[in-house]
Design a protein around this nucleic acid. Structure first.
Lengths: 227, 227
DNA sequence: GCTCGTAACGAACAACGTTCGTTGCGGACG
DNA sequence: CGTCCGCAACGAACGTTGTTCGTTACGAGC
């Protein structure tokens, strides 16, 4: 199955292609939110109907998969510096790229990464971890874990970037929720309400936790045949 | 707003209630999959229409939130043993409970945990970490991170539990995908294909990574005002 | 300059979440 | 014991959704 190429070159209207459809999908997602990302809406943005998209895109899921991978295309691969710092930069960049588009990270969760640019990032991560001296098994599992952290972190952050609410809305909700909690039933949560809601670079801390843990936890002890 | 109570007690049909609706939703989800979890389908299972559900449930999202919390109700709180082992058991139990129902973990990602049973688990986790000697800030952020690991891990595992495919389908897909990858473009992935697809208790390893990392990474250095 | 493959399109289908107006049961009151 | 009325339950409808089908019309090749 080769990529279809439009042979109608109307002067007033750029021809359709998989790339412009995906890019338009990202535009609609960013401007109007996840609920507005419908096939009809994307078609309308391209001055056509929804049916026309199905020549280049298998279905809505396929479109979102392609949108995710396109969003990862801009993630820069760090070139220099100590390997730990490079891992940090790469993970943070990937998380930011995903979370910039509301709800897009959710399509990555539950599904082996298969996109071109996602694999590019994973390959680089793998190389960096091997540079760090990790054995094959630990490096492989660590990449799995880091990718999970990227997608989950992006999904969580991406939920805050909803278009219909202000940025601080979720935080205010959490404050109210935890303030009204019965102290007898949830003593620790109410006692540690301050630290739970406190500001700070949690993502970078979590990343540091992962790296420190990975360096101190060889995967060998968790393989099935280690008797 | 008090919980509505059905006053029609027809002998042939159990009266509606929020609980039976939520429980029926879980039954439909487990038997027929996430796509089949529609308001009409749940209503049909209860021998009524979709509109009748809206007395006890605000909307579909509210139903799924309630389903998630009900799924967490059976998670046992470990009572004895060293605190690290208790944390392990609790996290594994929670992940299993979520991943038992396809797609349910996704509703927890992006959304402060607010359900009764979810808070119960978080409160216990917090207590265990404080028992381990962590300072308030680190314990609070660690609970955040562990909850992220629970939901993300459950979402990933829950994706494999699709009803329309066999269990080994996803693994076979991954094997084929990685086997056909161009070695010049993704050298590390192709080289480490074996370890990447290898079996083993990755979840427990990841959990150990998190715990080891948490113990060696105080949150203090990541707060905004630490100059 | 005719033909043919196929990109593009309009219309339609089935199914979805949700709302509205009505119905009829059961407890409360006279 | 009979009447009333609040509200759970329901049937029907609305607006949208993803996707498919049959048709149209353009551009390349003989």
């Amino acid at each position: 199955m080769r990529a279809p190429v439009s042979r109608r070159a109307r002067p007033a209207k750029a021809p359709l292609s998989r790339e412009v459809i995906v890019r338009t999908g990202l535009k609609v997602l960013d401007r109007d939110g996840l609920d507005a990302l419908t096939m009809r809406r994307v078609g309308q943005e391209l001055d056509t109907g929804a049916a026309s998209l199905y020549v280049y895109v298998k279905n809505r899921e396929d479109l979102m998969d392609a949108m995710l991978d396109t969003a990862l295309a801009d993630v820069p691969l760090p070139a220099e510096g100590p390997w730990q710092q490079q891992v940090e930069e790469l993970v943070v960049s990937a998380t930011e790229a995903m979370s910039r588009h509301e709800g897009l990270a959710l399509v990555a969760l539950g599904g082996i990464p298969s996109g071109e640019h996602a694999l590019r990032i994973l390959d680089r991560l793998l190389a960096l971890l091997k540079d760090g001296g990790l054995d094959d098994m630990t490096a492989a599992w660590a990449v799995d874990l880091l990718y999970l952290y990227i997608t989950a972190g992006a999904a969580e952050q991406g939920a805050y970037n909803t278009t219909d609410r202000t940025q601080g809305q979720h935080l205010a909700d959490a404050e109210r929720l935890y303030a009204e909690l019965p102290a007898d039933r949830y003593p620790m949560i109410t006692a540690l309400r301050g630290p739970l809601l406190s500001a700070g670079d949690r993502e970078r801390w979590g990343l540091q936790v992962l790296l420190n843990g990975i360096l101190n936890t060889p995967a060998g002890g968790f393989t099935p045949a280690d008797t």
